[in-house]
Nucleic acid binder design. Sequence first.
DNA 1: GGCTTATAAAAGTCAACGCTTATATAAGCC
DNA 2: GGCTTATATAAGCGTTGACTTTTATAAGCC
Lengths: 134, 134
Amino acid sequence: MHAFDALGDPVRRRILELLSEGEQTSGAVTAAVRAEFGISQPAVSQHLRVLRESGLTSVRAEGTRRLYAVETAPLREIDAWLDRFRGFWQQRLDALDTELARGKRERRLRQGPGGTDGRETARHEVHDVGKERQ
Amino acid sequence: MHAFDALGDPVRRRILELLSEGEQTSGAVTAAVRAEFGISQPAVSQHLRVLRESGLTSVRAEGTRRLYAVETAPLREIDAWLDRFRGFWQQRLDALDTELARGKRERRLRQGPGGTDGRETARHEVHDVGKERQ
DNA sequence: GGCTTATAAAAGTCAACGCTTATATAAGCC
DNA sequence: GGCTTATATAAGCGTTGACTTTTATAAGCC
C-alpha cells in the first residue's frame, strides 16, 4: 500500500491527473505543474521519480524525451483497499432509497453506518468531543 | 483530497481497517496498534487525532471512553478521484474478455485509455528507463 | 566538435512529521 | 476525597521530505 504515500502530495496527484489524459512528456508535465504550483523543474523531476519508484507511472524514452504514463497496479490496490469500506456508504444509500421511497422527510441523511453490532450508531460528533485547539 | 495525506501513514491505515469492523474505543485501537507497531499510547492518540481532523473518523464519548468510527466522506472522495483511472483497468479487462471470447482477432479495441493522441500505447518499462540508484 | 534542449542527479536547507517522555483532564470507584 | 483507568495534550528531538541552486548526462542540430 506504498502508493498512498506517494499520493499524499498534491503535486503528485495533479501529475497523475494530467497523465490520466494520456501519455505526456516530462516537459509537458513540468510546464503544467510549474504553472500551477510555481515550483522548479528539478522539483517536478523529483516528484516524477517518486511516482516512478512507487510504480504509479511507467516511463519510455523517445529521443531526449521521457514519456510518462499511468501505471494502474497501485491504484487498483487502493481501490481494493477501499472495498472494506464500501459497505459503509452503499448501506447509507440503500437506507436513503428507502427513506425517499416511503416519503420520509430528508432530514439528516448524514450519520455513519458501520457498527459490528446491529445497533444504530447514534449521533456522533464529526470532529472531536471536547475542545479542539487551533 | 486532504484524506490522502492522512492515509499515507501505515499506522493510520491500520486504524481505519480496525474501525472498518465497527466502532472501537480508543483503548481497543491503541492496544491493537501497540501490539502490531510497538508504539506508545500517545503516539496512537496522535494518529487518532489526525484521523479525526482529516474527517476520516468521528468520535463519541461514553463515560471515560472515546468511541471512534469510520467517517466515509473522505473515502468516497478518494473513490471518486479514482474514477478517472478506472477506464485504464476496466478496458484491460474488457480487452481480455474479448480476446478470450473471439479467439484473439482484432486487438487494440479502443487502445490505451485516455490517449489524447490516438497513438498505440506501446510497450513501456515499468520503472525507469536508465539506471536507477539504490 | 560545440551549442542547445530535455531531463535527471547532487548537495544543502528548512519545515513538517512521528515518536518519546512527562503531564493534564476527567470519569469511575472505594 | 484520593486512587485508578482512559485518553488527550505539551514539549522536545531525530528523521524525512519537499524545495532550492548547481551540475551532469545525453540526444539533436549546425
